[in-house]
Nucleic acid binder design. Structure first.
Lengths: 341, 341
DNA sequence: CTGAAAGCGCTTACAG
DNA sequence: CTGAAAGCGCTTACAG
């Protein structure tokens, strides 16, 4: 005798009436509805999700999968928390909850996704850090679960995605450096097969070409997306006979390790080496010199992700009639002191 | 016709037999068990969690609540991701899943907890960033849900907790600075009523007293736990007529803003002002000068959190016979260059 | 406007 | 060793 049964007994009505009153169904007298709502609030009643899910066939929850093991997961600074906030703002409008699903380090991400959707823990999913070939997409597509990816992938599908403008950032960074007179411009990209690395590198190559500069493989540095990776980048740069005069980073925290390594060699960012970082974060503003980078609103990105996901779910398609969203998220240049050289 | 029913029909057995086979019940012939397991794997069957939860009365999931809105939440995802990993390592041994529950910015945390447990989304909870008075604890206690807090609180209860050694860190930092000759030592604590601030400040006061130094209120700086807060701290320090020679931080990222602000005034950490940070992270190692701080293994902390939580759940108490854990988590000093002054 | 009843997908005593 | 059946807590056609 718990839950709705107990509540119904207290009020001397049937459980059906309680359910209808609480779910805002029209065919309940206003008086009864008020009594039920008051009693529910008083005893802190909320419907058991298992019972509701089983009956309705949905969970009213959206899952956001993150990976704990990878570089990209572990070093994301404040990226995800900001995005979660925005996603939730969208979901809250529809009384949906966001549940974050952290894939264990030692579990295969694809298997994890499979397990979560087979258990019907969530109605829809958001996956991030897409790889060039990403089998999670295959699993989600085959399961016919609504999903959106934060990041493009070469794995085909008709799913929606939103991705940061890696291409545009790389191009504008190169253009800006060329305009300032730089001719030997290095680039740092991830050492794993996360898709954004390929896009960033393409943007870099295209920008070089557009500026009449030749692409030199020795100026491409593949380093882990972490402060340590930045340190390694600095180390490699310092060891070069013919050091480039500028470097474009694909991840903002690389700057921290890079700055440190340059300092150890008596070099100053912005004077001895122009640096353009990636995403603006608290770190970029408080480094000395401040980091030239690109701004975006994580919350707005999260809001858009949530909306694009809902747009792909038939039940919400009329509220968000945008169809299948595939969108490059713009980022705005924030000039700093690090590329004055 | 889905799920277990479909599977049973394919195999020409009853759904009861399928369930028993998959759940490792003894009274199933080995031959049948193998056939069922093979078929389940082939069609990617996993029991619908709603059906299972409803019947069993549990969810096999543990919730870890984080707050997106607060300073403490927003600036800590490197902290949490490491802890999640450890918690999951413990839970995985028992086929329990970790589900992260991010409380929306605009929802009251206590109400959020109430809603999550009333819905029976998880069997047990971990809450973090405990406040001095924390009504979430009251709600969880009243609901008789097993839970553990990452952080102590003045709110009473018989629940387990694990907390970082804020007291010990503050004392050792002061002792170390005094040993190096410092007499005017400032401290930075959070500007909100998160409990760790009170503990840290107490440790600082006690250490001053133990070293025969008097406590001066003007040397206590209440700043937000963020890079910006560190910048503000630097600003306040630079404005003082009689500047302290050292400062102890309660949050590692304060160092970043502090370094920047000192730099703007032509001051160098470790020369003009000794700085001892809090938790060792990638940032502390790559700052110039490197930050003297304190080390802990986030994964081990997470493992211990998971174990202590399970120890408080009757069904697991025999595996983890440690009773109600209330434990101060030790942190190890990592000398850096920032307190050489 | 309200109640009685079916049924969502499971697990588990209970028969046989 | 296996099947038939009850029942977990809900929601929702269906009667009245």
């Amino acid at each position: 005798m718990t839950g709705i049964k107990f509540l119904a007994q207290q009020l001397n009505v049937s459980i059906g009436t309680v359910s209808r009153a609480l779910n805002g169904k029209p065919d309940v007298s206003e008086d009864t509805r008020q009594r039920v709502i008051a009693a529910a609030a008083a005893m802190g009643y909320a419907p058991n999700q298992a019972g509701r899910s089983l009956r309705r066939g949905n969970t009213n929850a959206v899952g956001f999968m993150i990976e704990l093991g990878s570089d990209t997961g572990r070093n994301n600074d404040n990226f995800f928390l900001g995005v979660f906030d925005g996603v939730q703002a969208t979901l809250a409008r529809h009384h949906l909850d966001l549940i974050v699903l952290p894939c264990p380090t030692d579990e295969d991400p694809t298997q994890y996704v499979q397990r979560m959707i087979a258990r019907r823990l969530v109605d829809a999913m958001i996956i991030s850090a897409t790889h060039r070939k990403d089998t999670r997409i295959d699993v989600l597509r085959d399961a016919r679960i609504p999903f959106i990816t934060l990041g493009r992938s070469a794995t085909p599908g008709t799913h929606p995605w939103i991705d940061l403008d890696f291409d545009g950032v790389a191009r504008r960074a190169v253009d800006r450096l060329v305009a300032a007179g730089h001719r030997r411009i290095a680039v740092a990209v991830p050492s794993n097969d996360i898709n954004l690395g390929f896009i960033f590198l393409d943007g870099y190559r295209n920008a070089l070409a557009a500026n009449g500069l030749s692409f030199e493989p020795e100026l491409v540095f593949r380093v882990p997306s972490s402060e340590q990776g930045g340190y390694q980048l600095g180390h490699d740069l310092c060891a070069m006979a013919n050091r480039p005069s500028a470097v474009v980073l694909n991840y903002e925290l690389l700057a921290l390790g890079l700055y440190r390594r340059l300092d150890e060699s008596g070099l100053t960012p912005g004077i001895d080496l122009a640096v353009i970082g990636f995403r603006e974060g608290p770190v970029s503003r408080f480094l000395s010199p401040t980091l030239t980078c690109f701004r975006l609103s994580l919350r707005d990105l999260g809001i858009a992700l949530g909306e694009a996901l809902l747009a792909s779910i038939p039940a919400y398609a009329d509220v968000y009639p945008q169809g299948i969203v595939r969108r490059i998220w713009p980022m705005e240049l924030v000039p700093g002191e690090s590329d004055r050289a």
